[in-house]
Every structure is written in C-alpha cells, then in structure tokens.
Design a protein around this nucleic acid. Structure first.
Lengths: 221, 221
DNA sequence: GCCCTCAAACTAGCGGTGTAAGTTTTCATC
DNA sequence: GATGAAAACTTACACCGCTAGTTTGAGGGC
C-alpha cells in the first residue's frame, strides 16, 4: 500500500490504541507490531509518527497524567487542595494501573507531568510553605500516590488459603485480600492520606504559622 | 561441553549475578543470554535451574526484600518499629533502584515479602490496632516506601534550566533537583514518614486508646 | 496543468529475545 | 556395572525494536 488518500494514523489514534492495549493486556504485551495490527497497519509505519517505542509510551503516560485535576490549589486551602489533588491523581493512575510502572519513573520531559508539578509546587509556596518544604511535600505525596497505584497491595495476594497459613502465622486471612482488593486499597489510601495531611498540618503550625480554619465540609465543589 | 564435573551454576550464583547486572545496566538490559555469558555459560543453561526468566527476577526481588530488617516490632513501640522498618525497607530498595519496578508489583508468593508482611501485620495487631486497620497501615507504608524508591522524584528532572523556565513559572529552579537527588529524596521521605506516623498516632489515640510514652530518643539500638 | 517534494504507507531484513526440544556426558544410586 | 537424573550443550522457532530503501498519493509553485 502506498500513501493512502487519507492518513491512516495520527499520534492521537496511536496513543489511544496503545493505552487500550496496555489496559487490556499489560505493558509487556504491547509490541509495535501488535499495536500496528490493532491500527490496521504494518509495524514500522508507527515510526513515521514517533521516533521510538519509548516515545509512544511517554505520550501514553502523559495522556494519563493529563486527566489529573490540578486546579484545586486556586480555589481551596492547601490541605483541601492537596487532598483533592491526591485523590484525582490516584484515580487517574488506578484507571490504568498497567502504565504506572512506566509513568512512575519521573516527570522527565512530559508536559502534563511538569504542569502538575508546577501547579502543586506553586500552590504550596503560595500557601506559605518554604520552597524546599514544598518540594518535599509534593514529592512525598507523589510517592504515596504512585506507590498505591503501582502496588495495589491486595492484588499481590493470591486466593489460596493454604499458601499463607502454613508459614506466616499472622497471614491466615491474607487470601481474602485478593477478593476485596478495591476496598482494601482504597481504605489504605484514605487512611494514609489522612494521616499524611494531619501530620503536615501539625508541621505547618510548628514551622510556618497558624492554620486557616478549614472551610465547612462539602465545600464549593 | 557436556555436564561438567562440578556444576557451573547454582541458583544463588545466578541470582547474585543477575542482581549485579541489573544494578549496573538496568532491568531492561538483563537478558538470559547476557546473564548466562556473565556466568560463563550458554543462555538456555539457566533453564536447568529456573523455569522462566520471571522466576529468576522473582528470586532477585526476594533477595532484595530479604535484607529488610523486620525485627523492630519485637523490641520497640509500634511507632518506633514502623519508623525503623520503613527506613530499612527504603534503604534496601534504594540500594537497588532498578529492581524496584519489578519488585513493587506485589508480594505475590515471594517468601521474604510475605515474611515481612507477616511481621508488620502481627506487630501492629499486637500493639492494639484492629486487624483491618493494621492491614491498611501496612499497605499505606508500603505504598509510600515503594513509591519513594521507584519514583526518585528528583531523578526525574533533567539538568536543563531552559526546559522548565520557559513554560512552568514555578519550576525555574527544578533543574537543580537533578544534582541534589539524594538529599531531596531523603528529605521528602523523612518529612512524609514523620507526617504519616504523626497522623497515625493521632488516629490511634482517637480510636484505640492512649499511647504509651515514647522511649527516650536513641533507644536500645 | 505539470512537476517537484514531502509524507505515509509498504517490504525486507538485522540482530536480539525468551524458551522449547533434543543431545551428550557426568555423577549418584542401586 | 547398569540406570537414571542432572547439567551442560546445540539447534531452532517465533517474536521483538528498529533501519533502510521503495512506492505512491497529496499539496504547493511555476
């Protein structure tokens, strides 16, 4: 086939299809040939639109990051903004857990990731945190969110009672985790996030100044 | 070469060499043939000792996890034990950052990871935490540690001032992060861990009961 | 309206990958 | 000493990312 009347591929179509394949079959199952086949095209044609496979993955990762809402810092107290951002971030990653290992390797040069870092850092500094502290807080929350999306603690366990009971005295109920994955992961995330924010608020009072009273629950959104 | 008088390979030697190669060149650079070559052997010979390449990686991951000290819970208050465990866990992962993406995908059936989960969960329940809470706390800390080892927030930035200043108003200093990687990552980890533990202590007081007074700083170890 | 250049697909192929299959020789056991 | 497992080997398959060169339609300039 020569050059078609209408281009078969666009960067957006490649990225969307790649994400769908990764969601369905995992990161390792994405090959340029399989991706091309899903697009009705031969493998090397992708290289007319992306320089390398990694460039495709970068674009996929950035498309996931782009769905995170970072606007909270303009409208809310820093504690509330951090909380909502963290949940939004987690939601974006949890919707595509298979890309997290790739995505978690740093913002690099991906624009959506950098825009997010910019918004969070800026919001914290504006709230009075010293710049170095703001960096640490942003990083710490990123650690927590990325770890939670990546690990899916409960997903790691297997639905086999024998396996754990035999050697691990306290894990006799661990096989049940496999079935309650979502509730366990969400509960752990909620607990950890609340604890983190509680601790940060204390640190703020100790080193920056008094906290503004929190807006009433169920704020402006 | 037929079967040699003395076996050239052992599982331990394979695992140790694989870990060294991963540390040196990254996870993606480990192939069965390169690993075999480093062991003075042909590629397929590895399959006399491991069923698949993933089985080798599992063993590598478990050898890293095995260096985490989980004994603190027998000798310390739960807060202090959690803190020391988290630091030890982080240290183990940070020593081999390239294996973290693989390792972070869940304890699965790896014995060292399961033994660690067992120790942490048991320690928390013994300290009075309700079982469901203990699960959440263990998971939350795992998220944080895994995320911190995986992400290495600072590593993600590039040493190029132009790149950030142009589009991200608050990231004008971000290129400096690349050079201060270790201090940034450790600072973020320390801050986040302290905040987490602070928040957990508050939660404990609210839902379980009064906290034992903390032992004087610089305890029995 | 023609021509030139570029773009977007193609085909062929290189070197590398995980691993299955079968072979050979040695060691350990009866 | 025969037997069988173990541990290396060689060969081979299907797939991988990617390069090179080819073909042909699309779009712009004269």
């Amino acid at each position: 086939m020569p050059r078609p009347r209408q281009a078969l591929l666009t960067r957006d179509r490649i990225v969307a299809t790649a994400l769908a394949l990764i969601d369905a079959d995992g990161l390792a199952a994405l090959s340029t040939r399989r991706l091309a086949a899903a697009l009705g095209v031969q493998g090397p044609s992708l290289y007319n639109h992306f320089a390398t496979k990694d460039a495709i993955l970068d674009a996929v990762a950035d498309s996931v990051t782009a769905t995170v809402d970072t606007g909270w810092f303009a409208r809310h107290d820093w504690r509330e903004a951090l909380r909502r951002w963290a949940w939004s971030y987690r939601e974006a990653l949890a919707a595509h857990p298979n890309v997290v290992p790739y995505l978690a390797q740093g913002p690099g040069r991906r624009p959506a990731a950098l825009a997010m870092a910019d918004a969070v850092y800026g919001g914290l500094v504006r709230a009075g945190w010293p710049p170095a502290r703001a960096t640490h807080i942003g990083a710490a929350l990123r650690y927590f969110v990325a770890g939670s999306a990546l690990g899916s603690f409960a997903r790691g366990f297997v639905e086999d009672p024998e396996l754990y009971a035999a050697h691990y005295p306290h894990l006799t109920q661990a096989h049940r985790l496999a079935g309650r994955q979502r509730s366990v992961d969400e509960g752990a995330f909620a607990l950890g996030l609340d604890a983190l924010l509680h601790g940060l608020a204390a640190e703020y009072q100790r080193t920056v100044g008094p906290l503004a009273p929190l807006e009433p629950a169920g704020g402006s959104e």
